[in-house]
Computed example of a mutant assay.
Amino acid sequence: MTQLQIALVSPFPPLRGGIAHFSTELSRALTAASHKPLHIGFRSLYPRFILRGRAAAPLATSFPQDAYLVLYNPLTWIRASLRLRRLRPDVVLIAYWAGFLAPLCFVFHRLTGLRTVVLLHNLSSHESFFFEPLMRRILSFAADGFITLSPSVDRAVASALPSIPRLMLSHPDYPPGAELPQKGVARRTLGLDPDGPLLLFFGYVRRYKGLDLLLEALALLPSRTGLRLVVAGEFYEPLERYRSLISSLGIEDRVSLHPGYVEPERSVLYFAAADASVLPYRSATQSGVAGLARGYGLPLIVTPAGSLAEAVSAGSGGVVADACSAEGIARAIEAFLDAPGGEQRLSKGSGSISWTEFADAVAVFLGDAPEGGR
């Protein structure tokens, strides 16, 4: 395979979040395959008044020299594009997770004159905006190819932008960040009850992720003695709203809230402590949390939103709910708990494409992408 120099435009650590994690693993896999990723990172994604200390805020105050993009400052896009024009990599690969990134893709495509491929985590924002149609039109002039990570996104691209070549791949599982401790040890370390089945909701708390539906589902299962839920992640919505809901449902003794960003080295404790990871999403394409859970061998309980059902492989012990509702989620939890060996772990990474396979497929597609400046 021809070695490629790939300009990878994406958040990277010390920015945190799923996209930074994904791009870091992809860069490692491309490097291992003898390609040459060139990081074009972000120093900031959102203004401080929007972040309020959450989400994509950095883990540290220092940034590598290749982190000079500011998403809300188009002048930094231009400077980065002109730098790439001088460096002349073989192709530009841009991570895309929301509609407001379309103008950035357009600037890179036009100013670099290079082949530009967009890696679509999502085609549209999770919380849709009125200008999404305009952003899709801009994107149609900004890409020589698309890489999609789920069938639902691939279908949307095929419908909205049918003339642009695309490659559909599945989201690889993340390699475990550390060896799993024993379940009892993990629970004691986190201050959780050592006995009984434990469900995990992990990651950012946003409306589309359906934590309220999961709480309502838990309230529908009063006969399940010892069943508990731990919620670990940053809240995009007011925490008190969820505390009030938990109180009104009468499930205070069955829910443990651990608000705030979970450092990677600590996340292993949550996945070791739990019996299943629950993704009660109202809407979705794919999920990095599913890749984390599967990497640790944790079964999934998911709704049928988007392509989430495809994250549950046959024989994994996971369950797909029959509806994106509290009732559907409650039935799925019961099915999981009633299944023989339902709380047993599966082999790590079962049924998933590896990062090596993913990187090889990406490189082949990038090498075949048409010339830039269409």
Rank of each mutant, 00 (worst) to 15 (best):
P172E: 06
L211R: 00
E179M: 06
T225N: 13
R224I: 14
R206A: 15
S223N: 15
K183A: 13
A178F: 02
H171P: 08
D193S: 14
S223T: 15
G203D: 03
L211G: 00
F201L: 04
G177I: 05
P259H: 04
S256M: 11
A217Y: 03
E252V: 14
G210N: 01
E252G: 12
G184Q: 13
A217P: 08
R228F: 11
Y204A: 13
A217W: 03
P264H: 03
L211H: 00
V205W: 00
L200K: 02
I246N: 04
D195P: 00
A178Y: 05
R187V: 13
P181Y: 09
L239K: 02
G191C: 03
G196H: 08
I251T: 06
D193H: 11
R187S: 07
P197R: 06
R207V: 12
H171L: 13
L199G: 11
L215Q: 00
L227M: 08
R187A: 05
G184Y: 01
S248D: 15
L167M: 05
V185R: 11
Y204T: 15
E179S: 12
R266L: 08
G210L: 09
R243A: 07
E179P: 10
E252R: 15
V185M: 05
G203A: 06
A219E: 09
F201D: 01
R254E: 05
A219D: 08
S244Y: 10
D253P: 14
R266E: 12
L257F: 07
Y242W: 03
L220I: 05
H171S: 04
E265P: 07
V255F: 11
V185L: 09
F202G: 09
Y208E: 12
L249Q: 09
L257R: 02
A178I: 01
T189P: 03
E252N: 15
L245T: 11
P197S: 14
G260P: 02
Y236I: 08
P194N: 07
K209E: 13
V255T: 10
D193Q: 14
K209I: 13
A178H: 08
V205K: 00
P222K: 09
V185Y: 05
L200Q: 02
P172G: 01
L239Q: 12
G203S: 07
D193I: 12
L192T: 12
T189Y: 07
R207L: 12
A186F: 05
R206I: 12
V255Q: 05
R224Y: 14
S256G: 06
L227E: 07
H258S: 11
L229K: 02
K209M: 13
S223R: 15
G250T: 12
V231M: 08
L180H: 05
S247H: 15
T189A: 15
S170Q: 11
G203C: 07
V231W: 08
L221T: 12
P176K: 01
E237R: 00
L257W: 06
L214G: 06
L167S: 01
V185E: 11
Y208N: 08
I251K: 00
F202P: 04
A186C: 04
P259V: 12
L220W: 02
